[in-house]
Nucleic acid binder design. Structure first.
Lengths: 202, 202
DNA sequence: TAGATTGTTAATCGATTAACAATC
DNA sequence: TAGATTGTTAATCGATTAACAATC
């Protein structure tokens, strides 16, 4: 359910302001969605039915969303590539909220090995496979330059990684047993530019 | 067409290796999609029909994709928030390829104002509105902490921005005339973790 | 020709929307 | 009660898939 994160963030914001209840019509107008669609989504996502006239209990709904999005059970991940973007992710505070923790970082460059960023030590690539195996890590983030991405990916898969978030702007091949997700900020911005252009015309 | 970037990246990779032709069945197996779906997509995206037995001309198809994805016409954007993530984006090389250029960066913190990152000067917020207006910028990236995001967004909209890429992990409100796109790496990784979990069970 | 490919037409599936009854 | 909300059932729409004819 691709709308769940949006709902979650809106509910969080409302809960902060002290709203005890959130109605589906409120969510619909706030997020620019159809009221019926939101009602249907909430019926699916919420563990308790909503109350007529007032809507859904904000705190309960927030908990349901967290459970649904898997923000409760902590997942550990490794990061490969501590360049500008990789270093920013190491220092990023937003992961804990989603039940995520980067437990180790790796880089080929000797110059950065041994450095500590936000309490995490940057290790050489040679330590990667054994650490993933020993700690039973299943998730990895690839933040290396495009030409190195496929090689890193192969090593990760061999070491037992089951989910890869690919931040490099290139296609990589994974076996069917591994889940791959591409996240390319430049491409996302380009799509946004397109949408703006399309809107102007209509 | 959400699959276009994937096609594009795969074609790029093949073109680099020296492949002159790409077939839809090849794309399908490489990207894990249905062969018919790819054929239909290409029929829509390609300006020239494919040749039977060999597939599509890789160079032409690459050009078509670039045109479709808007990678040709250069779009300028501003960045607000030069923290870890913002600084990484300023130094990021991947934008040019997608026809994008960050022309200016802003931050509230005096300590970072005046610094130059990758040839771009970090300016105080007070310069933002006039610069956006003067350079007729339509795109902005928000990379500030969550509590500041809505305030920054309001200023951007007032200054005439038409498309916003929101990297902060919070919901923000925009008027219907503005296109908003959320990009939350932590949330993306959480979804990946979910998919891995789901796969294990099935 | 045989085989691998393309493109098209029709069928299926899933998600969205519309209409309405039920609740407080 | 009246009004605002919820939840459900049926209709619509769009995207995906299946089947097949056409090409080199």
């Amino acid at each position: 359910m691709r709308r769940a994160p949006k709902y979650y963030k809106y509910i969080c914001k409302q809960a902060e302001v002290g709203c005890d209840f959130v109605s589906s019509s409120e969510l619909a107008t706030a997020l620019g969605l159809g009221a019926v669609q939101v009602r249907k989504d909430l019926a699916l996502l919420s563990s308790v039915p909503g109350h007529s006239r007032v809507g859904f209990d904000a705190k309960l709904l927030k908990k349901d969303m967290e459970r649904f999005l898997g923000y409760n059970n902590t997942n550990e991940a490794v990061l490969v590539g501590v360049g500008n973007m990789g270093a920013a992710l190491l220092a990023h505070k937003g992961f804990v909220r989603c039940g995520l923790k980067i437990v180790a970082a790796f880089d080929v460059r000797k110059s950065i090995q041994g450095k500590i960023i936000d309490d995490k030590l940057v290790l050489p690539m040679s330590k990667m496979a054994s650490l993933i195996d020993r700690l039973k890590i299943r998730l990895a983030i690839i933040a290396v330059p495009a030409p190195a991405a496929q090689g890193v990916c192969n090593k990760l898969v061999k070491a037992g990684i089951k989910g890869i978030l690919n931040l490099s702007p290139t296609h990589i091949d994974v076996p069917p047993s591994v889940v791959l997700q591409d996240e390319d900020i430049a491409a996302a911005l380009a799509i946004l530019a397109q949408k703006v252009e399309d809107k102007k015309e209509s």
